[in-house]
Amino acid sequence: MAEKDTSNKKIRVLLAKPGLDGHDRGIKVIATALRDAGMEVIYTGLRQTPETIVNAAIEEDVDGIGVSILSGAHMTLFPAILAQLKKQGVDDIVLFGGGIVPNEDKEKLEKAGVKKVFTPGAPIVEIIDFVRNEVGRNRADEKIM
């Protein structure tokens, strides 16, 4: 393949399922939808700890992390991922997610630094638009050499 000088950046998103539940139907639908919207989606599968999720996000150099939590452990797991991001000094990867999250918790989480929490029935277009517009916007511009 010929090498060219024009940049071909793509939005890269890591999708993961933290916690113990195995309901991955929703996150797989999102994975397919984001791919079809032209993004590169790294799917890491079930039962990921906050630490592995953040490590994977760093290695894959993604613009955003999307997680799905249906077990009710969202108030523990979202903050744990945020804490892990902070611990690793990452401040430019967007965290978003979805799941069975009551409104009250959703507000708390969004205040705590989760960019957006989608609840059941959120239209896929809305999620795609969110990723397109909000994820990857605030990547730190670092000097290479």
Binding site: G38, E40, V41, Y43, E60
Partner: peptide, 19 residues
Amino acid sequence: PSSPFTGGALLGDRVRFKE
């Protein structure tokens, strides 16, 4: 593979990767 139509890709090999 990337999709030839949308340029998007679903990268699933990491599922197998155990740190």
